[in-house]
């Protein structure tokens, strides 16, 4: 049997694949954060809570309206996106002229409130959400049995990441958005409604979080803390990738997922810290992040 540093190659293949799946979640979540930070200059600490909300909305749709996984994949991000729009309109838009810190405090407070309410309503151990029938059962990859659902997560996340990147970098809407971040008054002078653009961008970033929440629902227990567990790592991903860099957050998301997967084989105790060690090194060498513009 071929081994690398004492671990069988087949086991490593398996771990790399699993790392890629976690990376898909990191990429999706950090992408939303990067979009929001890049265009609104808001450090959205409520991202984890909104991710959790996505999972709970999917669960509620199934439980009360009998609406299954596939429609929920579209509906839940829409519903949570609308919630995000309301949040932006009523709270966040008052802070654009202030320091970053205020946005961070506000969204952090929102996260605590949303998570606290969910905990009161649903308890702390969470609610079950089944894997959709079409994606049950394993795929035989030769080196491991991969649940079909996990393969779908990678495909769906990669697809959505790519689409978002294309929209922002290659379309007219995207160029307007980027222009609005560079110089809002000028873009407004051209007749673009910048405040509405910003509101919709926040809604879209939030919808990305909710989409990730629905993807996560069948894998993790849908519980009020599910977002809090992710959010810190995801912030590290965003910082490593370069605050506000779309491509950076996608690439680092997947990359760090894989690195974490490998750590789980060689020294599992460190698997929660490895991302932060990378962060320290990157910040020392390139303070603007891997893909950030200094």
């Amino acid at each position: 049997m071929i081994t690398i540093f004492g671990k069988p190659l087949l086991l490593l293949y398996g771990q790399l694949t699993l790392g890629l799946i976690n990376g898909a979640f990191y990429a999706l979540l950090s992408l939303g954060l990067a979009v929001i930070f890049g265009l609104l200059n808001i450090i959205n600490f409520a991202h984890g809570a909104l991710f959790m909300l996505g999972g709970f909305v999917a669960w509620a749709l199934l439980e009360y309206l009998d609406i299954g996984y596939w429609p929920a994949l579209v509906l839940a991000p829409l519903i949570v996106g609308v919630f995000g729009v309301v949040m932006e309109k009523t709270l966040i838009n008052r802070l654009y002229k202030l320091d970053h810190l205020y946005g961070l405090l506000l969204t952090f407070g929102c996260a605590l409130i949303i998570e606290g309410l969910a905990r009161n309503e649903f308890g702390s151990s969470g609610v079950p959400y089944p894997i959709p029938d079409e994606l049950r059962g394993p795929l035989d990859l030769g080196f491991m049995m991969l649940p079909a659902y996990r393969a779908w997560v990678v495909v769906a996340a990669a697809g959505v990441c790519l689409a978002t990147w294309l929209v922002i970098e290659k379309t007219r809407i995207g160029s307007t958005l980027r222009a609005a971040t560079e110089n809002a008054p000028l873009v407004q002078a051209f007749g673009v409604n910048v405040p509405r653009l910003i509101t919709l961008t926040y809604g879209a970033g939030v919808a990305l979080a909710a989409f990730a929440g629905v993807l996560a629902a069948p894998i993790y227990s849908v519980n009020p803390n599910m977002g809090a567990n992710f959010i810190i790592t995801v912030f590290a991903v965003v910082v490593i990738g370069g605050m506000g860099s779309i491509l950076g957050s996608i690439v680092t998301g997947f990359g760090l997922g894989i690195l974490e997967g490998l750590t789980k084989v060689y020294y599992p105790q460190a698997s929660a810290t490895v991302v932060f060690m990378v962060m320290v090194i990157v910040l020392l060498a390139r303070p603007a992040g891997l893909f950030g513009k200094a």
Binding site: Q15, L18, I21, N22, Y220, I232, P268, S271, A272
Partner: peptide, 8 residues
Amino acid sequence: STTDFSSF
């Protein structure tokens, strides 16, 4: 801080 246990 662990949520994904598939590796283990």
